[in-house]
Design a protein around this nucleic acid. Structure first.
Length: 876
RNA sequence: GCCGCAGUGGCAGAGUCUGGCCAAAUGCGCAGGACUUAAGAUCCUGUCUCCUAGCGAGUUCGCCGGUUCGAAUCCGGCCUGCGGCACCA
């Protein structure tokens, strides 16, 4: 079979029949979505994996009935296109269009069952117009705002970045060291949704735990106290935030971030002014070049000012300290001996310290008291305030907070690490931020859409939008002269609501129709890389909630179920050009065809785990695909295994269905291998009729994994329809059970004739069988039935015993039996050998009634002797 | 440092939730056989150790200990590896 030809043939047929078109109909809906790609032109293995997983699931759901939405589109704005344009002296639009065309062709050659009628691209005005509309809605509601602040600047991308896009001080895209700059930028007020974003994580029970944890950490909620403090000799008040306020009475000094504007006010006119401002400059310099290192640069200067201490424990000197985070809390912190950094800082500058927390160990306590060592442990004993004296640091928290509130020192406050989302970018290839600046009217929403000007120069120097022809415009309000915003939006904004546009991609009047969105949303299954655990997945949740608050959807969360597939690696290392271990899916596709590729990628690893690519593996899978294709040509046999085949097929169907539901594709493929082997192994005992019957079901269940081969097999059986649209077969419980016939017979037999049990269990002549049943009044059959059903443990034991596979030692049985007999469950049968028998009889001391069934006269006599008065029968 | 996850045969990777049909699926690799002039492909068999070769015995699932008649599986401690966050007071 020419697999390449087969693939092309069915792709053309699907296309011609428009087979995968989705409709809003009165059926159970299912929205399956993969994180859409940035059109770089070439797919990488990660894409293939992502979409193979998604397509298998979508195809399965489609066959299971119901209406399915499975769309695809392009996250087409972004830096690579612009950089490519600069490099190749072309226009990003042209470059992107080419890339999309290439990538679409590749996607289609893999046979993914997308509804291409819904294709959208963020770089088209039809799409980004609504991006701009959304921005203006947010602007109107104060959710989009402009602010001058210290921001992350990537010198290589020549644009600012959001906090989420900085990883360990480096740009997420190009890994350049990020600098700090003071700039006026546009932000989205994601912090307004911090609490809800955190709380609703609980609704996302089917999301991977680690994604939820990562978002939880990123939002970083903490609860503590805000102290309101007054500067001595100045008419100046400020707040400090303390999330661990138990040791507040140990506070002996106060530190302020160098970036804090209050520093200037504090030192104005003092003799420290110059020294402090110089220090501030040095630290800022270091930070902006990212040369700041907490280990070596823990420095500070005294401002000459004091806090008028409200606790009555002496005034607190205010220092400017390099390590204070301006962005967190209020940027000013009260310090005590019970924080490691503060302790070290105080030691370095000889600032007095006070201790309110001591360990139980006396020697240790003395060291702490003498400030020889730093100390803070949850089980440390608080010495102050009086109200909690003697209590543990950890346990006293709530009480201390109440004390602080009662005294009026401060008030309970919640703090988040989450910062507002910086969305402006100083680049061309993105959605223009749709505002104009008018001298008269201020910031005014622009008329939509604000199209990207086609004529632009891509030199790599400066923002191509920052040219007069684009900037100069007219104010929509007063018709006077005005200037356009030249920044574009972070492309993460584009992709924060695309799943909604897919529900109504061609709408010219609205961002999407509420009815259609309400029908399809939320996305039932979302699939994509873990690298977006915080970035895209947090932004999308935020924007979705904003959209809800605009009244455009009734749901709270966009993605009810999430799967994060693992990376594709080679020999343990991430595929990268520099390592030279990149496998090109295009080449592989040429060589093996789509079915082999898809099967291999699904089989090689569980979806959420790493996938180690190896060439032998795909070669082996290719053989397997050919093997499946060859089933139909096998010589047929006498039919003695037909029933077994039917049973095996039903088992496979059941297993594959379950594995598909739970994304255990690797196991599903394994089951397909097993049954394929069965066809081959027993070909001489399978009739042609049975084989063809089975093959029909077989082609249905391989359809999500190897759709092209499935169609070919299906057609080969005389079907004119598409197997991709066939109904997923239902499994037949009775047939699944066929394999357990032997056990059923056993149970039936036991009811009729105890002796038969012995026969059925195929006991060796040398062994004896003991049935311990209490009370013996009821038939063994009833006992068995009850036991098998009601108790797991005994049921399991029963199964093991009956199949003869469990052979516990006599001693063990002796101990086990009384326990079981005295409990509501009873053990009806035990099989063991002579040696065990002896141990058993010696060890057995039970009150319950016992019946002995022995196979040999000697064993029978022995048992009777050991258990006088117990019924015993001999089976020969 | 904090949080989360994992450690099973030559390799990849099941089994762990719910203890016993577990010497442990499946695939790769390896060995032998059939077919073939041969190679490849394909098919079959074997693949922890020992032997008298068996519905045989022994030793295994990171290490140590505990619970249990019984532990890869449950509990406690330790070691190792991975991921995320990290100057958040």
């Amino acid at each position: 079979m020419d697999l390449q030809k087969v693939a092309k043939k069915w792709q053309a047929r699907w296309d011609k029949d428009n087979a995968f078109k989705s409709k809003e109909v009165k059926k159970q809906k299912f929205y399956c979505l993969e994180m859409w790609p940035y059109p770089s032109g070439k797919m990488h293995m990660g894409h293939v994996r992502n979409y193979s997983i998604g397509d298998a699931f979508a195809r399965y759901k489609r066959m299971s009935g119901g209406s399915i939405l499975y769309p695809m589109g392009w996250d087409a704005f972004g830096l690579p296109a612009e950089n490519a344009a600069i490099k190749n002296k072309t226009h990003p639009r042209i470059w992107t269009k080419n890339c999309i065309a290439q990538m679409k062709e590749q996607l289609q050659s893999f046979g993914f069952s997308y509804d291409w009628d819904r294709e959208v691209s963020t770089a088209e005005p039809e799409y980004y117009k609504w991006n701009q509309w959304l921005f203006q809605q947010m602007l109107e509601r104060g959710l989009a705002y402009q602010k001058e602040s210290l921001v992350n600047w990537c010198p290589s991308c020549t644009t600012v970045l959001a906090n989420e896009q900085v990883e360990a001080g480096k740009c997420w895209r190009c890994e350049s060291v990020v600098e700090n700059k003071q700039l006026k930028q546009w932000f989205f007020k994601i912090t307004q949704y911090a609490e809800e974003l955190l709380r609703d994580l609980d609704k996302l029970g089917t999301w991977p735990e680690r994604v939820r944890t990562m978002q939880d950490n990123w939002i970083g909620k903490s609860q503590g106290i805000n102290f309101i403090q007054k500067v001595k000799d100045l008419d100046l008040k400020f707040e400090v935030y303390d999330s661990i306020p138990q040791t507040f009475l140990a506070q002996t000094f106060c530190i302020i971030a160098p970036e804090h504007p209050m520093v200037k006010e504090l030192v104005k006119g003092t003799k420290q002014e110059k020294e402090v401002l110089d220090f501030v400059e040095t630290v800022k310099q270091k930070k902006s070049q990212n040369k700041f290192n907490i280990e070596t640069d823990m420095e500070g200067v005294f401002t000459g000012r004091y806090v008028d201490n409200p606790f009555g424990t002496g005034d607190l000197p205010i220092w400017v300290a390099s390590f204070v985070l301006y962005e967190y809390g209020t940027g000013i912190v009260n310090c005590s001996a019970h924080d490691e950094r503060d302790f070290e800082f105080a030691k370095k500058y000889d600032i007095p310290l006070k201790v309110v927390l001591l360990p139980k160990d006396k020697k240790h306590a003395e060291q702490v008291q003498n400030l020889e060592v730093f100390y803070r442990k949850p089980d440390g004993i608080l010495q102050a305030p009086e109200e909690v004296k003697g209590k543990a640091w950890h346990a006293a928290r709530e009480q201390v907070i109440q004390h602080i509130e009662k005294k009026g020192f401060g008030k309970r406050t919640t703090n988040y690490k989450l910062r507002d989302w910086l969305i402006s970018r100083q680049r061309y290839w993105g959605t223009p931020i749709p505002v104009v600046f008018c001298d008269k009217c201020g910031v005014v929403p622009a008329k939509l859409p604000v199209k990207l000007p086609d004529k632009a120069e891509f030199t790599g120097e400066g923002n191509p939008l920052a040219v007069d022809s684009f900037i100069n415009t007219e104010c929509p309000k007063c018709r006077g002269p005005a200037k356009r915003e030249t920044d574009t939006m972070d492309t993460f904004v584009d992709s924060s609501w695309y799943f909604l546009r897919f529900t109504d991609p061609k709408n010219k009047k609205e961002i999407f129709s509420k009815d259609k969105a309400d029908y399809w949303m939320p996305v039932d299954q979302y699939i994509g890389g873990i690298e977006h655990a915080v970035l895209h997945l947090l932004y999308a949740r935020f924007i979705f909630k904003v959209i809800r608050d605009l009244g455009l959807t009734k749901h709270d969360e966009p993605f009810s179920s999430l799967l994060c597939q693992g990376m594709v690696v080679m020999e343990g290392a991430k595929m990268s050009k520099s390592k030279g271990n990149v496998v090109d899916p295009g080449e592989m596709l040429q060589k093996y065809g789509p079915d082999t590729m898809r099967l291999f990628i699904l089989f090689a690893s569980a979806p959420e785990k790493e996938l180690d690519w190896n060439d032998d593996g795909i070669e082996a899978m290719h053989k397997f695909v050919l093997r499946m294709a060859g089933i139909k040509d096998l010589a047929s046999g006498d039919g003695s295994k037909d029933k077994h085949l039917a049973s095996k097929l039903q088992q496979t169907l059941q297993a594959v269905s379950n594995h598909l539901e739970t994304f255990e594709h690797n196991f599903a493929v394994q089951k397909l291998m097993e049954i394929t082997n069965f066809f081959y192994q027993h070909k001489s005992r399978i009739s042609e009729k049975a084989r063809n019957n089975s093959l029909a079901t077989f082609s249905q269940i391989i359809s999500p994994f190897a759709p092209h081969l499935a169609e070919e097999l299906w057609e080969g059986l005389g079907n004119k329809t598409l197997v991709s649209l066939a109904r997923w077969p239902r499994y037949n419980e009775r047939l699944v059970k066929l394999e357990f016939d032997a056990e059923d017979a056993l149970i039936d037999a036991v009811g009729a004739d105890v002796a038969k049990v012995v026969e059925l269990t195929k006991i060796q002549p040398k062994k004896i069988t003991l049935f311990v049943a209490a009370p013996w009044k009821r038939t063994l059959y009833a006992e068995l039935k009850e036991l098998m059903k009601d108790t797991r443990d005994v049921g399991k034991i029963m199964q093991s015993l009956m199949s003869g596979k469990l052979k516990p030692h006599g001693q063990a049985i002796a101990k086990m039996v009384p326990k079981l007999v005295s409990s509501p469950q009873r053990i009806p049968a035990i099989i063991f050998d002579e040696k065990q028998e002896r141990e058993f009889l010696e060890g057995l001391q039970l009150e319950a009634e016992v019946m002995v069934v022995a196979e040999e006269k000697a064993s029978h006599d022995k048992a009777k002797q050991a258990l006088p008065g117990k019924p015993a029968i001999l089976v020969e």
